Simulated assay, not measured.
Amino acid sequence: MKTSIEFSHKIKRTQEDWIIDTVVYALAIFIFIITFYPFFLSIVLAFNEGKDATYGGIYFWPRKFTLDNFAELLNDPAWGKALLITVLRTVLGTGITVFFTCLVAYGLSAKNLIFRKFYMGMVIFSMYFSGGIIPYYMVIRSMHLTNSFLVYIIPSALNTFFLIVAISFFQDIPKDLAESASIDGAGELTILRKIILPISKPLLATIAIFTAVTQWNSWYDCAFFTQNKALRTMGYLLMSVIKKSSMSQSNMDSYAASVAGGTITTVSVQLAAMIVAVAPILLIYPFFQRYIVSGLTLGSVKG
């Protein structure tokens, strides 16, 4: 007797099914093209001579391939320092955020914690309400974080949204694991380090990738809380050069740098900077994708 699965494979598709599928796939392809092509064109122009690109007519591949735009970007002391600051804040900020989020979440996941409801109320309240930019700036200044590298690290050390996700995740881990280790004499920190965290890779990867993306692209804190040019980030410089690129096309055509034979323009350097800023995230994300999906679903539904 044929099973229902075998029977379902032999169901004939109607003409309406084919029409709907065709429309859906065509629409999906169209949306993909109009969203991906501007980024693809930016990559093409970043590898093309800047002055030559101002003449137009470049659509799918560089007309005059060059790496001068990237060389000019990386040789510029301002961009070099910004890249270093961005890498440092991304690495340190991500590690500290993951550490403190997991540490606090593990404590709040214990239902026998004294004043747990009060602590949870504070977390939820702070997630939905904020004092605004002026009180926030006053807090930053009172902590002497303005014009300091730590302004990129300390305020984001604990993310309330990730904290809620981590609490739910830890609560779904069987209590027998922690109890058996506790009977053997393990302390809470030992249980967290040797038992809980090793089986929480989806959670750790989820927090890490989202925090890293936020740290890498951030420019808001650099604009408001630092005046020291040595602390400028890639995101801030990108925002600055994008604002400067509002000049007319004729001005862009006549504005070429005095290096590399006059082939570099401000726009070509901007495009190279954009590629440098986006490429690391695009390269890292595929390796964390499977952890991110499971990290966002595990712990979200109670059994």
Rank of each mutant, 00 (worst) to 15 (best):
M127R: 08
S218L: 05
G121M: 10
T233P: 12
L237I: 13
S200C: 07
Y137V: 10
A105G: 05
A212N: 11
A157R: 00
P135L: 09
T206A: 04
A186C: 14
K194F: 12
I133Y: 09
M127N: 03
G132W: 11
S180Q: 07
L158Q: 01
F149E: 05
A181V: 03
F162S: 01
H144C: 06
L204Q: 07
L203N: 03
L189P: 00
L150I: 01
V123C: 00
F115Y: 15
V165K: 01
I195H: 09
F161K: 04
D184G: 03
F118S: 14
P202K: 04
S168Y: 12
S200Q: 08
T226Y: 02
F224Q: 11
P202I: 06
M234F: 02
L145V: 05
F125Y: 02
A223Q: 15
K117I: 10
I195A: 10
L197V: 13
S109Y: 04
I164K: 00
A230W: 13
G107I: 14
N217L: 11
N228K: 14
N147D: 14
T214V: 11
D172R: 14
S156N: 06
A157K: 02
T214P: 02
S109L: 01
I154D: 00
L197W: 11
I134Y: 14
Q227E: 14
M127Y: 13
R232D: 00
D176T: 14
L231Q: 05
I196H: 08
A157M: 11
W219M: 02
E188H: 14
P135T: 08
Y136G: 12
N147H: 12
P135M: 07
F118G: 15
G187Q: 03
F224A: 10
F118P: 04
T160C: 05
I124Q: 10
F161L: 09
A223C: 09
I114A: 10
Y137C: 05
I154K: 09
A186I: 09
N217G: 04
T160A: 07
E179K: 15
Y220T: 14
F149L: 04
G121Q: 04
Y106I: 02
S182A: 15
D184S: 06
Y137K: 02
F118M: 14
F149R: 01
S156V: 09
G235D: 00
F169N: 00
A186P: 01
R193T: 12
A205E: 07
K201L: 15
K201R: 13
S148E: 03
I191S: 11
I183W: 12
I173K: 01
I196W: 03
S200D: 01
G185I: 12
A208V: 05
F170W: 09
V213P: 01
F115C: 13
M122K: 13
